[in-house]
Design a protein around this nucleic acid. Structure first.
Length: 919
RNA sequence: GGGCGCGUAGCUCAGCGGUAGAGCACUACGUUCACACCGUAGGGGUCGCAGGUUCGAACCCUGCCGCGCCCACCA
């Protein structure tokens, strides 16, 4: 006996445990493999709404495919999240007033991180389970576990040997708070209020030139002033101390007289050349640009092109260096203090022309939120441009399909303009780069130190060193030291994530899982990590594997808050999915997310919607209770094709249509369409009509029709459980178990097949006629203010043989649902009756004395008005010759029929109006 | 500066070439033996604006207005 309502709190953990124990999450069976690798959440993380959506959709697909008999592997795991995790642990150490990481050293620190991971790293996994995620937890991986580390090493070494990974000294995005380089993607450019300072750089030897200050309409100069300086503008005055030149555009005639000469770099008291380069825009600012090659990406390029000296100004914390080219007073100052000082000093010397307020784009570290400083350092790079080629082609050729297709454009755009990927990070938590340096600075890349050492010995031997020399190399003044010193840096977290689709399956070993499940079927993710992750998996997968990492990429929405803002911890606008699960159950949250996951659109989550879908679950629960109370028990031996009753054939027909619709939608990732179709069928068709229409039979005398109806109803309800299971796994599984004795759990039950639910168009037409009539009667009753409880008589006027038969067949149903006391046939409508027109028939309800003549007149007039409007619309179309000529025949025919139907209806209504007017 | 997306019922959103839809909210009625987390009936939209294409446009095209996102080196 079913309880009064479903209790998610007690049922969910119980059901989940049963599924897991049963081995349902394992990729067994002989079906076609269906594989999804989970976007590994950060070990530091907890489940947010984005995860909830992402994993709901993956779980919907996995459950759907599992029921369709495929051998489903949903590969789970977590990401070590280098920067984030290191930050979390360091913060915790600080809170506990423990020694800093630099004080305890690398090894001790890493022990602490591992300890932390062991202690609280599993939180998000538990939360995924609460959502109902059917990952194969026995295969859980971590990006820093042994197997994945082996994959990382192998990939790094291979790419290095192929020349696709290299070490280079160039400008990188430096995070002065986290003290590491970061990639372009980890920089967030934000517009901030800044200033634009205009400085004079005096010319050498007090030289002067004529600078045009007014022009005629042709742009010819008309007025000049004599200048002994060149005017430059900057948003970062402190960097002037590192200027190596001033550049102007070669076509800029204003500066032609002084090109090639030198100007004084104030404060630094150096002379720097005035050069030409294509970079300066003559129409912007003064047209002259100070070139600070070591602290600006553009300037760096100019400096490289023109062989301009670079002056590194700052240390790793962005404090001014103690360097001989920096005046003493600035040394040791923070860059922002230095800025103030520089401006003050320039002004004091009378070299400040003006200061403008200006909005500027400033780069911030996405983790640290401090201003990123371009710094000249040695880092490791992946030659992304070369690796992108195969990845681009794979999508072009359709080997990987991105859905919605609009995102492939974004993918291409980024891939085609890709920059070298800086993969080294000056952190401790992560995959330490497998590179070792010899005494002469030569780098040896190998999977192990032994191999690197072997290589080193080989190289030095070939260079003519004897074994003894090599041994001597190991000796420092202090004594024994290793020949090679390992690179301290670790790899970008995304480097290991990029290998996820094959590293989790066992690569580089040739495991059975790899053979069976690669390429994976679909990657489900949000668009904000297309660059970070999808693109890089494509590059790595296409390079190291014989095929693409996934056949489909499904890009889903971002979940936003009610104001349409991205949820973020810093904004404090996060809606916790677990709170919603506690309140409404996991099923309600899942269904809401799926129902709102329309392609190409973001989701603004509203709690009312979750509540609404929780109610849907309850509705289904109650339908099942009804079935239970009325002996509708699932019978595996019952064949829906054997159903004879019209009502049963109709509901089977409708169920078949729904199966088709939901299946097609799920196959093409239209989650919202699938959810909507199932919802409408379950509530608006099965509950609202079938169950209501079935009541008289179910509650009547025992007979074959009753037995068939019981079995049909139970069967259709079972089909709903199946269809709904991917979306609402808990409540459907519970009902599945409670409503019949079954051989298998719902989670592994076969997905419904449309072909086993035969269509019955004539039955559908008949039942729809009944439904329509009931609707019409109800509507008229309400409008005539007939009390809901009152039973009234109905007279079918001059009904033809077909409607008469239908009326006769469904007399009891119609009477019950429309609250009629009797139904009889007559040749004319009785006086003082409300008359309705349904599919050409007139149905009158005599309301002797009760009827409000004026109200009935108004009602009929309103109905007639509707017909007139429809007819007018059709006439307008039909009277247009080109419509009849050019529109498809079936459209024209449809309109013709429409006209006939409405005209007939209007005629009947008019007759009714006429009659009532006489009365 | 490029690129993408969005403006449809009070709110959150489907629909994207042939009769305007859902959930929530709202109004009226309802103790019908599954369900008030319910039922029945109903109100509510010139589908951002202006042009164009088409027999026909919420849907395609162009422009404009408003909003959002991504990328980018204007010092």
């Amino acid at each position: 006996m079913l309880d009064k309502a479903f209790d998610p709190k007690s049922a969910e953990p119980r059901l989940y445990e049963a599924w897991e124990k049963s081995g349902a999450f394992k990729a067994s069976g002989k079906g076609d493999p269906f594989t999804i690798v989970i976007p590994p959440p950060n070990v530091t993380g907890s489940l947010h709404m984005g995860h909830a959506l992402n994993n709901t959709l993956q779980d919907v697909l996995c459950r759907f495919e599992r029921m369709r008999g495929r051998s489903v592997l949903w590969q789970p795991g977590t990401d070590h999240a280098g920067i984030a995790t290191q930050m979390v642990v360091e913060r915790r150490m600080a809170e506990r007033q423990e020694p800093r990481r630099t004080e305890i050293g690398r090894e001790k620190f890493l022990e602490k991180v591992w300890a932390w991971k062991a202690e609280s790293g599993g939180a998000i996994i538990a939360q995924l389970k609460r959502l109902g995620a059917t990952c194969d937890w026995s295969r859980e991986r971590f990006t820093m576990d042994e197997g994945l580390s082996a994959a990382v090493k192998k990939v790094f070494v291979a790419l290095f040997r192929e020349g696709l990974i290299y070490r280079d000294k160039r400008l990188v995005n430096w995070d002065p708070k986290l003290l590491t380089a970061i990639s372009d993607l980890e920089v967030e450019n934000t517009e901030v209020a800044g200033h634009f300072w205009h400085f004079k750089y005096p010319l050498e030897h007090g030289e002067t030139y004529e600078f045009p200050i007014a022009h005629d309409e042709n742009g010819e100069p008309t007025e000049w002033e004599t200048r002994d300086y060149i005017s430059i503008a900057t948003t970062r005055p402190e960097t002037m101390l590192g200027d190596g030149a001033v550049a102007v555009h070669p076509s800029d005639r204003r500066y032609a007289p002084i090109v090639g000469k030198k100007c004084l770099l104030p404060l630094a008291d150096r002379y720097i050349p005035i050069i030409t380069d294509e970079y300066p825009d003559p129409d912007f600012g003064s047209g002259a640009v100070k070139i600070t090659g070591a602290h600006d990406f553009n300037d760096y390029k100019v400096a490289m092109r023109n062989d301009i000296k670079l002056y590194v100004l700052m240390d790793e914390r962005a404090r001014m260096l103690d360097a001989d080219y920096i005046p003493e007073k600035y040394r040791g100052l923070d860059r922002f203090e230095a800025r103030k000082q520089v401006v003050a000093d320039i002004e004091e010397r009378g070299l400040l022309i003006k200061v403008e307020d200006k909005k500027i784009m400033q780069p911030f570290g996405d983790r640290s939120n401090v201003v990123i400083e371009p710094m000249l350092t040695d880092q490791w790079y992946v030659d992304a441009e070369k690796m992108a080629i195969k990845a681009i082609n794979a999508v072009l050729d359709g080997k990987t399909k991105i859905t919605p297709d609009a995102w492939s454009k974004t993918y291409f755009q980024w891939m085609r303009n890709i920059e070298p990927w800086c993969v080294s990070r000056q952190l401790w938590w992560g995959h330490q780069i497998p590179a070792w340096y010899g005494p002469d600075g030569h780098v040896f890349v190998a999977e192990t130190e032994e191999e690197a050492t072997k290589e080193a010995i080989l190289r030095y031997t070939q260079e003519g060193y004897s074994l003894e020399d090599i041994n001597n190399m190991r000796r420092h003044e202090e004594g024994e030291a290793p020949l090679l010193v390992r690179d301290e840096d670790v790899l970008d977290t995304w480097f290991s994530s990029a290998l996820w689709p094959f590293s989790t399956l066992g690569w580089p070993d040739e495991t059975p899982e790899l053979a069976k499940h690669y390429p994976t079927s679909v990657l489900v993710t949000a668009h904000d990590i297309i660059f970070f992750w999808v693109a890089r998996m494509m590059m790595m997968g296409c390079h190291f594997m014989p095929d693409v990492p996934f056949r489909d990429v499904y890009i889903h929405a971002l979940v936003l808050d009610e104001k349409g803002q991205k949820m973020s911890k810093s904004k404090g606008n996060v809606i916790d999915p677990l709170t919603l699960i506690d309140k409404y159950g996991a099923d309600a949250l899942r269904f809401t997310l799926a129902a709102m996951a329309a392609q190409g659109r973001n989701i603004r989550l509203s709690e009312a919607r979750v509540e609404g879908y929780r109610n849907f679950g309850t509705k289904l629960w109650n339908a099942a209770r009804f079935c239970e109370m009325n002996g509708c028990v699932f019978d595996a031996a019952f064949d829906p094709a054997s159903a004879r009753e019209t009502l049963n054939r109709w509901i089977i027909h409708e169920a078949g249509k729904t199966v088709e619709e939901a299946t097609a939608a799920l196959q093409s990732f239209r989650f919202n369409d699938a959810a909507g179709a199932i919802y409408r069928f379950a509530w608006n068709v099965l509950c609202d009509w079938h169950i209501e229409l079935a009541k008289p039979i179910l509650m009547g005398e025992d007979c074959p029709a009753k037995e068939e109806t019981r079995k049909t109803t139970a069967l259709v309800l079972s089909e709903v459980f199946k269809l709904l299971h991917p979306f609402m796994p808990f409540i459907t599984e519970e009902l599945w178990r409670e409503s019949a004795s079954r051989e298998t759990a719902l989670i592994v039950a076969p997905w419904p097949e449309a072909k086993s639910l035969p269509r019955a168009e004539s039955a559908a037409a008949e039942i729809n006629w009944v439904i329509g009539l009931i609707n019409a009667i109800r509507s008229a009753r309400a409008e005539m203010n007939v009390p809901a409880g009152a039973k009234i008589e109905m007279v079918a006027v001059a009904a033809g043989p077909a409607p008469s038969l239908r009326l006769d067949l469904h007399r009891e149903l119609i009477a019950r649902l429309a609250r009629l006391s009797s139904i009889r046939l007559a040749d004319a409508a009785p006086k003082g009756a409300v008359q309705i027109v349904h599919e050409g028939g007139i149905y009158a309800m005599p309301l002797a004395g009760v009827i409000d003549i004026a109200a009935e007149k108004a009602r009929l007039a309103k109905e007639i008005e509707k017909c007139v409007k429809e007819i007018e619309a059709v006439d307008k179309k039909m009277s247009n010759p080109s419509f009849v000529e050019r529109a498809p025949v079936e459209i024209v025919e449809e309109n013709r029929e429409r006209r006939i139907a409405f005209a007939a209806r209007q005629e009947k209504l008019a007759a009714a109006l006429n009659q009532i007017a006489e009365a």
